[in-house]
Design a protein around this nucleic acid. Structure first.
Length: 454
RNA sequence: GGAGAGGUGGCCGAGAGGCUGAAGGCGGCGGUUUGCUAAACCGUUAUAGACGUUAAACUCUAUCAGGGGUUCGAAUCCCCUCCUCUCCGCCA
């Protein structure tokens, strides 16, 4: 969520930014509602103030008639039928109780108006996406991402004398994944990992966690479920047909789509002591995605599944662009380090404005070369969300003891997703005989150096 | 899942219809004293919002888990929800 005051003061720019980002917003309506709310709120507060004064006066009279009359705004005095000071009975209990009752009668309508306007503001404000880094390329499709660099060498399978298989074929040959059993027990796009694949999965997690702990991240295993308001704070939409998240029937809970949700939510409504910043967390969780409307292309095998395990990096840092951008660069560097160590060729993409989603100020994806389909495929994503998530979740810190709390910046990044990361390793390390050589970096975590051939 | 006990400021902990944004203590901050440290003493110390201002101050509204109710007036009385703890059950 953006700061409402900022939106009102910069309506034009915010509307333009939303348009660049492919977001449908009603900034004019937001500004109008915000002004109407201010007006209504002033009336409500004046009414309450007078009601409080009268209630106190009823218990223990301290004001004379003139003072009491002076406390009345003129619009309220006429509503109450008090034309002038002479009708005020500052020491008569029944009169005061009567006025108190009348005031009480006025409040519900005023309060209803305010909360109606607030609901409208909330609804409209929620649709407004974060601001955008000036270097982010414009555009709305995958073609509009800017390729920053390619790293690693794509193997020349022709000169090695064989045609590479995709991970589904490899897994089939080597009995590493059982998609049929997954479909039987849970439906399409569920699967069982089996045999060496399980150890590879765990090895990748351990390897990743070791790298992150060395980098100063605190390892965590998070809940796999979270409350809807936490999802919303992070920027997910738990309801509606296009929702990417599962909700649990009979409980006010959702299956998380990423540990970003639980880790970000962990510090909701918290004021963090400044010496604790930055807080860097490496969270392991399962991720659940309905993949609503994602049929067809690019969904073969493990590429687009309803459940996978992920090691997620998350950072809470000082609410300062220079600081969060430095962390963002590091998250990207870590992702590159990991896939470099796994000997997977990749390219780095600067994601275009129309594809950023609501919370990200800037987003970099790593796309791995996937020989099985002869194409690049997204394997990680790291976003700087600046204060967008922190504002809704109220995650703050103090710059100095006793100082005013400020919103933190939050960042997240995939360290490794044990779906697409597995694809990248299998397909890039396959050998002519159908076996798969394990990357050197994983050997300390594995009781074998090659899977197959069988 | 069953039974009980609770949820008050950064923390501990009083408070039992109006004088309570909330005693007292701890912690924090500022100061006095002091060779230094400590101690002692004095002062100060919540969040959000409105108004206003160059900015502030002042003032006002809301907040004692959350929501609703009773009342002129609720931390205090009533109802609902959530959460925590203890015991039992079940289970990894």
């Amino acid at each position: 969520m953006l700061d409402l005051r900022y939106v009102v003061a910069n309506a034009q720019a915010v509307a333009q930014n939303a348009q660049n980002r492919n977001a449908v917003v009603d900034i004019d309506g937001l500004v109008l509602a915000s002004q109407a709310r201010s007006q209504a709120l002033v009336r409500l507060e004046e009414t309450r103030r007078v009601a409080n004064t009268v209630a106190k006066q009823t218990g223990k009279p301290t004001l004379d008639a003139a003072e009491l009359f002076a406390a009345l705004p003129t619009w309220l005095a006429s509503d109450l039928g008090i034309a002038d000071c002479s009708v005020v009975r500052a020491n008569e209990r029944p009169w005061l109780v009567d006025i108190g009752k009348k005031l009480k009668g006025l409040e519900p309508d005023l309060a209803a108006l305010v909360s109606q306007l607030e609901a409208e503001i909330e609804l409209k404000a929620r649709q407004v996406p974060n601001l955008t880094h000036p270097d982010v390329p414009l555009g709305a499709s995958d073609e509009d991402h800017r390729e920053l660099r390619q790293v690693g060498v794509r193997r020349d399978f022709a000169s090695e004398g064989f045609v590479p298989l995709d991970h589904v074929q490899l897994a089939e040959q080597l009995a590493l994944i059982d998609f049929e059993a997954g479909a039987k027990v849970a439906g399409q796009k569920f699967y069982f990992l089996q045999n060496e694949m399980v150890l590879l999965d765990l090895a990748l997690q351990r390897f990743t966690i070791d790298v992150l702990v060395r980098r100063g991240f605190t390892p965590m295993v998070t809940p796999d479920l979270a409350r809807p308001d936490i999802l919303e704070g992070i920027g997910f939409n738990p309801r509606g047909t296009e929702s990417q998240v599962y909700t649990v029937a009979g409980h006010d809970l959702c299956l998380i789509g990423t540990a970003e949700i639980t880790i970000g939510g962990m510090l909701a409504d918290t004021i963090i002591e400044p010496e604790r910043l930055p807080i860097r967390i490496a969270g392991i969780s399962h991720c659940f995605r309905t993949e609503a409307g994602a049929g067809g292309r690019e969904s073969r095998g493990l590429y687009r599944v309803h459940q996978f395990t992920k090691v997620e990096m998350f950072i809470f840092c000082a609410g300062d662009l220079a600081v969060s951008q430095a962390h963002h660069a590091e998250l990207l560097a870590i992702e590159e380090e990991l896939f470099g160590a796994l000997q997977v060729p990749y390219r780095v993409m600067d994601i275009c404005a129309g594809d950023l989603g609501a919370p990200a100020y800037r987003k970099f994806d790593l796309e791995a070369w996937m020989p099985g389909r002869g194409a690049w495929g997204e394997i990680t994503s790291t976003s700087n969300c600046t204060d967008f998530q922190a504002r809704r979740l109220q995650i703050r810190y103090r710059t100095e003891p006793g100082g005013k709390p400020r919103l933190v910046h939050t960042l997240n990044g995939t360290a490794i997703a044990l779906s697409r990361g597995l694809i990248a390793v299998l397909e890039n390390h396959q050998q002519a005989d159908g076996s798969i050589a394990m990357p050197k970096a994983l050997l300390p975590y594995l009781p074998f150096s090659v899977i197959g051939p069988r």
